[in-house]
Every structure is written in structure tokens, then in C-alpha cells.
Design a protein around this nucleic acid. Structure first.
Lengths: 154, 154
DNA sequence: TGGGATTATATGGGCGTCAATGGGTATATA
DNA sequence: TATATACCCATTGACGCCCATATAATCCCA
């Protein structure tokens, strides 16, 4: 079983605002917390990023190691914890995208899911497509060989 | 179930001064002391900080790690411990914000709750929003580590 | 190995439950 | 007694759970 978020899917958002998390994404979530994910605004792009709640605890630990009375401590916890939204996944594998995040990503009736390995992104379909093209173009322009990236062994 | 304070909520303060502690925050409190929280003035910002009573020990530890003979030691212990207020949560999940704290934070009719991981902050909504923006700006300007915090694997 | 049968996934909708909110009343406390 | 606070009840809207269906994927056995 693949334990990474991969591939691309486009799902519909119904009248109640529900959207299915792609089945293969659900399977990536640990069995213990398979009915909950976290969502947050992508920093660099108008998209939503998401992953399992397990990562939250990692982040919490890391922040907790910062100097408790430093400004960084507050900045990190504010920017991360208050911006993160936890969402429940129902028995059918659907969840609600909060209004604020939908606005940020320009999502209305459809959501495009992009696997990104350890996390995934949710885009408004057309924007997501354009981002993929732009991304690939940049890669080629910089003369990085896509083939090398894909076939090279670490 | 997530055992951290995360996300942001804005709740109304009614005529009697009551305000609902967000449901997800209530669930973070230990079942043993689910009807009690502590509140105190944030040291660095015009906001109220709160958490379950269990967190007190952690705060004590942090302060104890400061240089005993430094000014900070006295300042922090005085500022925090002597200002701590315990508040009861009623059957509906509401509590009263003491007048002095409301004044300190400039809170009147609405309270914005910001998850901060192991504790939370209560802001006057507009001030809270501005603080979030400022905080994020500082992080992005000075460091690029926010993304790392979020996506890096352990 | 073909093709019907079974299962899984995405989607739609009804309905009960819970969270947030408002208000009345009892009780405590000064 | 007057003010503050806790408990009880009520309302509204949002959300989770249940059931249903269509389509796609998989299975399974003759």
C-alpha cells in the first residue's frame, strides 16, 4: 500500500459543501486518525494544503522546543496553529472545506486534488491545471532534465 | 481526537457576559477538569491567554528555567502567576471573561479564539486579525522556515 | 479467459444531534 | 436586599450519520 499522496483527482462539491477526499488519499491516512485531516492555506500559491493530523503533533513538538518567551515562539504558533483547520471526514469519505479556505483558493463547485508526497494540495481545477503547466515550464527552462529527476536513483 | 488547541473561532458575548468556549477547545481539556480553565494577560500582546489547569505546571517549569537572579525571572513570575484567574465553564460550555481582562484586550461584544497548540489566545476580533497578519509577515520576511515547519519530515 | 456478479467509490438527500446563543429563575454572596 | 453567577429550558442552524443510487473497478468461477 502506497503511503504517499500521489496522482490527481477532480471531485464535485455538493449543495451541503461536502467533497470526497480521493480514496487513495484516505488510505494514506493512518488507521488511527483516518477520519480527520488538517487544512491550511498554502504559503506560495492560492491553494489549500492538507495532510493527516499526525503531522500536527510533530509541528507542536518542534515549536515547543523554541524559546518559550521569544517572539518566534508566538509567531510560529500563531501562524501555524491558529491558521490550521481540522476537518472531520464522514463515513462516506467526505469533508467540508471551510469558507475562508475556499475563498482563498477560489474554489466553488469543484475541487482538484494534487498529491504532493507527504501532503496534498486542493486547487480550483483551472488554476491547478495552469499551475501544473507553469511548474513544468519553469522546470524545463532551468534546464533541469525532467527525465533525470524521475529516473535518477538517490 | 486532537489534543491541541487549533484553528480560529469568533463567538459572541451575550448580555450576561457569557461566551462559548469553542467546542473543539473544550475537547482538549482533560475530562477530569473539563469545567475549568485558567486565564491570564498575555505578556507580549494585548490579548488573553488561556489553557487547562494542567498547563500551569508547564508554565512553572518554563519560568524556573530562566536565570533565577535575572530581572526576567521576577518579572515573569509576577506577571503571570499573580495574574492568573481560574474560571468555571457552565453546562453549555460558556464562561465569563473577567472585566479586567476584557479591558486589557479591548474586548466588548465579540471574542476571537486563536488556537496556539498547548494554549489559546482570546482577542478582540480585529486586533487578532491584524496580529495574525503581522506575525506571518515577520516570519516570511526573516525566515523561510514556515514552510519547513509545515511540510518537513522528521 | 470471458462475462456476469460483487464490491468500491463518488454523489445525493433525509433527519437526528449538537453547538452556539438567548433568556428565565434559583441561589449565593456581600 | 441587591448584584452576580449557576442551572435549566428553548431556539436555530450547522453538521454527522444513515440510507440510496449510479458508475467504475474487481472478483470469481465455469
Amino acid at each position: 500500500m502506497m503511503d504517499l499522496f500521489v496522482s490527481k483527482y477532480v471531485n464535485k462539491i455538493d449543495k451541503k459543501g461536502r467533497v470526497s477526499l480521493p480514496s487513495s488519499f484516505r488510505n494514506v491516512l493512518p488507521k488511527a486518525n483516518r477520519n480527520e485531516i488538517i487544512l491550511y492555506k498554502s504559503i506560495k500559491t492560492p491553494s489549500i494544503e492538507g495532510c493527516g493530523v499526525g503531522r500536527l503533533k510533530e509541528i507542536a513538538k518542534r515549536i515547543n522546543n523554541l524559546d518559550f518567551f521569544s517572539e518566534d515562539y508566538d509567531d510560529f504558533s500563531t501562524s501555524i496553529f491558529s491558521e490550521i483547520i481540522t476537518t472531520n471526514i464522514d463515513k462516506e469519505g467526505r469533508f467540508l472545506i471551510p469558507e475562508e479556505l475556499k475563498l482563498y483558493a477560489g474554489i466553488k463547485t469543484e475541487a482538484a486534488f494534487f498529491g504532493q508526497g507527504y501532503y496534498f494540495q486542493i486547487w480550483e481545477p483551472k488554476k491547478g491545471l495552469k499551475n501544473t503547466e507553469d511548474s513544468r515550464r519553469r522546470l524545463l527552462k532551468e534546464k533541469k532534465s525532467l527525465r533525470m529527476m524521475l529516473t535518477q536513483q538517490k
